[in-house]
Design a protein around this nucleic acid. Structure first.
Lengths: 212, 212
DNA sequence: CGCTAATCTAGAACAAGTTACAGACTTGAT
DNA sequence: ATCAAGTCTGTAACTTGTTCTAGATTAGCG
């Protein structure tokens, strides 16, 4: 049983030197900046490399594909958002309200950089098995954000299912909005609709909060 | 009910000649076949063209991009599935059960050709604005299938929201399964979970007919 | 049949993701 | 300081989606 480390984005292989960490940061920043300008298509590996001041081969050493790069960018942004959200938690009375409020807040943040959101979400849903670990990390981050908003410290299996469904709705609604097939109002309705599921699994209804 | 009278994918410009219709069919078949073999990556435009016995330029005249082609392929398959489902409607007592059963049936159909499913779903979620009309057609088809299963002929806005959320869950759950991040059991749970929303919005008066 | 416009074919060319490689630079150990 | 191993750079090549072009074929029409 290998003692898996806790917050594990990197496979823990070599502890990056300072200059390497800096390179990584430059690459992620360049990626986010290009994405914010022109979306998925504008994130061209040659341009990212140039903007970050590294050689193309180096870029590929750090991120083995464009998808990996953009998913890592999303990880980065999500972490940022999670921190921000924790500073000002949602104020709603019941969990469903708080989750809906949180997601809509996140949604408005994405609205400010729709092209960046487009690039990240497209990469996320286009990712194949080779990116599973990274996508999974993003998923766990999202789950953490939702559970935070619910105030569920020890979620039961039912609650986890509900959270998964909320995540599904969140991602898919985002996609339909990004591709211009749904309005913001509609996304809001969908989010609020799915959040009603939370009330169905209020503690006591099916999952006893004891133990664990 | 004529199958083609209602299906408005093409901008209706020129009514295709017989040979053109045949070409289109050959292309779609080639696409589905290649996709079934090796998924999204195996659908290479040159290969599709060759397998369909048309020139590359012709392929692009019929389908302006690989994404368009695969979304059209999905349309095709969905239509087929819709027909099949109508022949043997789900038998559940209440709408939620019937929808869950229908979706799981569709899911098992996709399971039989996971690579094809991968190609189609990846294309669908990767599609950008230029493919909106086609993606919308697929979305309407899915909606029709779900409404059929619900038995809702005149759905209210609430019901439509619920159906949208179910669709979101369906697509996103499919993706997580296809990329190996969720098991079939988990997908089933998610589908059943989201279908509980249906009971919350029983059509105006009361619960499902035949109550029990 | 012969004409014209549209369509189709074959193939080259271009764009961007990805890979490969030779040589310069860092890093760490001695 | 020196050496070995690993990393980074610059650049070319390869792959596959997409576009373009010139000539052959087809469809509709007199």
């Amino acid at each position: 049983m290998t003692a898996e480390s806790r917050a594990d984005h990197r496979p823990a292989s070599p502890p990056l030197t300072e200059r390497q960490e800096a390179r990584r940061r430059r690459i992620l920043n360049a990626s986010a900046q290009l994405a914010a300008r022109g979306g998925f298509d504008a994130v061209q590996m040659r341009e990212v490399a140039e903007a970050a001041g590294v050689a193309l081969g180096t870029l590929y050493r750090y991120f083995p594909s464009k998808i990996h790069l953009l998913v890592a960018t999303m990880q980065d942004q999500l972490q940022h958002m999670h921190t921000t959200l924790r500073k000002r938690p949602p104020a709603g009375a019941d969990p469903a309200q708080r989750v809906a409020e949180t997601l809509m807040r996140a949604f408005r943040a994405l609205q400010r950089e729709p092209q960046l959101a487009d690039a990240m979400v497209r990469a996320l849903t286009f990712a194949d098995r080779s990116v599973s670990p990274e996508v999974d990390t993003v998923s766990r981050l999202t789950t953490a954000i939702i559970l935070d908003a619910m105030g569920a410290e020890h979620p039961g299996p039912e609650q986890l299912s509900v959270v998964r469904v909320i995540e599904h709705t969140w991602h898919s609604a985002l996609i339909t909005w990004l591709s211009g097939r749904a309005s913001i109002a509609q996304v809001k309705i969908d989010i609020e609709t799915v959040c009603r599921l939370i009330d169905l699994t209020a503690p006591g209804a099916g999952a006893a909060p004891g133990g664990g």
